[in-house]
Design a binder for these strands. Sequence first.
DNA 1: CAGTGGTCTAGACCACAGC
DNA 2: CTGTGGTCTAGACCACTGG
Lengths: 235, 235
Amino acid sequence: MTKPEKKTWQGVRAEVQRRIRTRAWKPGDAIPFEADLAREFGCARATVNRALRDLAEAGLLERKRRSGTRVALHPTGRAVLDIPLIRKEVEAAGQRYDYELLARSGSPAPPHVAKGMERRDAPHLVHVVALHRADGRPHVLEDRWIDPETVPDAAAADFHAKSPNEWLLENVPFTRSELSIHALSVDPQTAELLDVAPGAAILALDRATWLEERPVTFVRLMHDTGHVIRSSITA
Amino acid sequence: MTKPEKKTWQGVRAEVQRRIRTRAWKPGDAIPFEADLAREFGCARATVNRALRDLAEAGLLERKRRSGTRVALHPTGRAVLDIPLIRKEVEAAGQRYDYELLARSGSPAPPHVAKGMERRDAPHLVHVVALHRADGRPHVLEDRWIDPETVPDAAAADFHAKSPNEWLLENVPFTRSELSIHALSVDPQTAELLDVAPGAAILALDRATWLEERPVTFVRLMHDTGHVIRSSITA
DNA sequence: CAGTGGTCTAGACCACAGC
DNA sequence: CTGTGGTCTAGACCACTGG
């Protein structure tokens, strides 16, 4: 190989990336061992390790003990989505944020909620519906269900002042969370709340969270038509 | 603090996470310096560094030179989406994969393509339309545009044997890629190809990629109704 | 059971942001 | 200028896995 590098782990990563990009190392190929690369680059093995680990996390390399490191056959792209507070998201876009509590009650979990929380029964949950606005226009309809057994404080929380979105994030820790993204045709009732045409296609984000094995909350965020989730892909 | 840990970086991370979760260290608080934690845990500073760096990447901590490390105010969740080959995705679901090239031509980029590729003109591109099936049923409609100036081989590529999705991934490296996810009401023509009701809500993924500053390709993947993108959130 | 990546250590120097 | 995180080194041991 023709091009050594600076002895920083970013330098090593850049050089390895270059060799993959220029096909000096082809998909499926085994690349030299850490120790050999360290010698070639004139740096410590730990430095090479750091660089290769980073590329493996990005999906460009596949590493196995004993058998060594290979260039990934299909560089499976990985997109990282930031899931900010809705308020922050709106403010970051330079728009005026506005929030309104629409309903609050208690009721048994409907099927899609029970399923999202991985429960086969239909537990009694706190149900909160809230609307987030951007520059006065409906932006996100938050349909949230909270398990009062895991979050007893939810009954007393003042969701007029702070959205459940924000209140939960600040007051209830969680250990696991599942996200699913899908497209929905809005039903007439939701359409009116969001001020969109009935039957329009909207983006819905379902998110369920747990604290250890105890369910915390399930929320469906229904976005205004035309909403787009953006991300750059690390590769 | 009451609970030291194993001297592995995962052990340190677990303990720090526990202190955050139990609110021993509250959001916004500064936590002890690396050197102090290393002494407390009886391990090397590098080990503490590894653990704290990991938590910072996950968004739980905010680190600054000189001023130290703080617990993040709003643990902004981060979802990692894997973007696999469509073929792999179908096969992973245990379904039979099937692929058909529907059309291939050359034409000027329509507005949404030019915009996605960050161009103000309407360059002449290779246009390929292909259908991916799962168990015989339409799964994804691939509407792809390739810049022949960046990818001269595209003209000669055999898209009957391999989908452009797969061919590009194996033959053309890229350095940057942007993803956007949105919901669409399918137009009648697309509805017929996907075998869904006209006007149904579907999930569309737009992806543009570049090699250095040169545009490579833009693709819109239109999914079958009911398709869901899933991910677990690291926090 | 041997080889390769995964990790820990103790020490050192550097870069950058507050003071 | 000083202190804190960021990184590098050289060496060591461990864990997993493929032959």
